[in-house]
Amino acid sequence: MPLWLNIALRSTGLFVFLLLLTRLPGRRQASRLTMFDVLTAIVLGGTTGAISLNLLPRLESGLIVLAVWSLFPLSLHFLSLKYKAARDVVQGREMVLVNHGKVLEDSLLQARLTAEDLLSRLRTKNVFNIADVEFASLETDGELSVLLKKDRAPVTAKTLGVATGQESVPQTVILDGAIMDEPLTALGLNRRWLRTELAKTGVAPENVFIGQVDHTGQVYLDLFDDSVAVSTPKTRDLLFLTLKKCQADLELYALQTGDPESQRMYGESSLALSQALRELEPLLRR
């Protein structure tokens, strides 16, 4: 067998082997590489290169290295899925670096991090003041996770005590001028509904680059022609304002009328509307 054929065959075989091997551990590995994973990759890569180029005196020795270095990590990986102890050995454990707002110098030393390292890692997390940190831990892949003190954490609707409506993922129903049927049916809508909505804004579907429908049925359109202004959906804002105006009108009528019977009716109606407004606000305003 000529040398070039030999090398080509080896390379092809190893290429397929490595491709299959790297697919086996699943998604997790892609983003969370531990030191151990990196080492394995280096050994596998080096050996593969050596075998491909026919640098080893015997083919078997290279194959044995490959077998050991792929079987051991794989079996360790499957063990670590099953057992916590194996997981601690293979992936290591996360280390608490800051607890209750106090830096734990011992863990810092154990993680081989200096105070500057900690500060710079905190800064990459947009934390510039160590006094704001309640808890920070070093994950097994070297990422730092930070929990801010309650008064320094970003406000959420819950901490503000604001009621919010439910919202699910918007569906992309038009891409590159083509109507996508599957996302439409996922929302319980159809082409005819979409055409009606498009006609309302006066846009042909062919002119739409991206069209999205949120879970409330409001359509957002991005056109090929960026100079054309598309009106953004305002149904909900308008509804809220209309109801608010009606409620104010009713209060006015209650003041104007001299008839006590209708004054009571206007007052009650105004109250009913303000109750409806209170309940609708989280759904209509956002």
Binding site: L250, L273, L283
Partner: peptide, 29 residues
């Protein structure tokens, strides 16, 4: 009419209940 339309489009049961209740209140007025 708008509230009723929104209620018919709403998938979330809780939000739909709110919309239905509001439609009832408005209908009373």
């Amino acid at each position: 009419a708008t509230v009723e339309t929104l209620a018919s489009l709403e998938n979330d049961a809780g939000s739909r209940a709110v919309l239905d209740r509001s439609a009832g209140l408005i209908a009373g007025v």
